[in-house]
Simulated scan of single mutants.
Amino acid sequence: MRAAVTATASAAARLTAARAQRLPCAPVRDLLGANDINAAYAVQSVLNEARIAAGARVVGAKIGLTAAAVQRQFGVYRPDFGVLFDDMIYAHAQPVPLDSLLQPRAEGELAFVLGRDIDHPGASVADVLRATDFVLPAIEIVDSRIEGWDLAITDTVADNASSGAVVLGTTPHSLRDRDLVSIKMRLSRNGAQVSSGAGSACLGSPVAAVAWLARELVRRGQFLRAGDVVMSGALGPMVPVTGSCSFRLQLEGMAEVEAVIA
């Protein structure tokens, strides 16, 4: 038990220093093991509690590693989740400071905004559809404190699922009669297309991804709350952020959203 506590504290300290010093660190799997996901979530919890104590407010959650293309990029073949804080959220075209990020990459996603809690085990896609108030097109700027994105599942989980920033569109869309399995995604950087995909890339459907998250949170003694913003996961490959640039996301049948990295 003492060894586990020491490993958790050491991993948290390493990631905290990387964030504070803005210098990527070595992977933490040497401390936690490559597959002990519970140990990694314990580190994530320590880091999240420190951010809350410093004044950050939890506004939702993000699901990572949902698209097969992203899983292949890192050799990690299971989804994970992290926490969204208020200081991570930006609006369409609102500049995201490049110097707040270390090794950023961009993904095209769909954000679910919940109108009611999902707090029971065995949550289904029907529960997610009933609980969702509206969805927004969104660009996630994922980031890693781990040098060179050298990740095992424990590295990314401990690092809050490699979270950075989220840029939300400002036009809400109802899920009624909307096919999220077949919806097409196109992500452009400085006007040139760099990624494409579809809703089916996200655990079969973004709705299925949010249902997975709801079940996983309840299993861990947590739950999704009314008002939460839930990033459902990438609809295609993530792409590097190359200095100051802009990304534009087009989701079929929805308003566009632009992320400006300044």
Rank of each mutant, 00 (worst) to 15 (best):
R2M: 12
A3V: 15
T6H: 15
A7Q: 13
S10R: 13
S10T: 11
T16S: 15
R19V: 13
R22T: 10
A26D: 15
P27R: 04
R29Y: 15
L31V: 09
L32E: 00
L32G: 05
A34Q: 13
N35H: 15
D36V: 12
D36G: 11
I37M: 13
V43T: 05
V43S: 12
V43R: 09
L47K: 00
L47I: 06
E49C: 13
E49Q: 14
I52Y: 04
A53K: 15
R57E: 14
R57N: 12
V58H: 08
V59S: 09
V59A: 11
G60C: 07
A61T: 11
A61M: 13
L65R: 04
T66L: 03
A67T: 03
A69S: 15
Q71W: 06
Q71H: 07
Q73N: 14
Q73Y: 11
G75C: 14
G75E: 12
V76G: 04
V76K: 00
D80K: 03
F81N: 09
F81A: 03
G82W: 03
V83W: 11
V83C: 12
F85D: 08
D87V: 01
M88I: 07
M88V: 00
P97E: 09
S100K: 10
L101D: 05
L101W: 03
L101M: 11
Q103D: 13
R105Q: 09
E107M: 07
E109D: 05
E109C: 02
A111K: 00
L114I: 11
L114R: 08
G115N: 12
R116N: 10
D117N: 13
H120Q: 12
P121V: 01
P121R: 04
A123F: 04
V125I: 08
A126H: 14
A126C: 09
D127I: 01
V128E: 05
A131Q: 02
A131N: 09
T132P: 02
T132G: 06
F134W: 10
V135C: 06
V135T: 05
V135S: 01
V135N: 02
V135K: 00
P137E: 08
A138T: 08
E140C: 00
V142H: 02
S144P: 10
S144I: 04
R145E: 00
I146Q: 01
E147N: 15
T156Q: 08
T156N: 08
A161L: 06
S162R: 01
S162E: 01
S162L: 06
S163H: 03
S163G: 11
V166A: 09
T170V: 14
T170K: 11
H173T: 11
H173Q: 10
S174E: 08
R176N: 14
R178V: 14
I183Q: 08
K184E: 15
R186A: 11
L187M: 04
G191Y: 06
S196A: 14
G197Q: 05
G199P: 01
G199R: 02
P206L: 00
P206M: 03
V207P: 05
L213S: 03
A214N: 08
R215C: 14
E216C: 13
V218W: 06
V218F: 08
Q222G: 07
F223E: 02
L224C: 12
D228G: 08
V229G: 02
M231P: 05
M231E: 00
S232H: 02
A234P: 04
A234W: 00
A234N: 03
V239L: 10
P240Q: 05
S246I: 00
F247C: 10
Q250G: 13
M254R: 06
A255T: 07
E256T: 15
E256Q: 15
I261Y: 02
I261M: 12
A262Y: 06
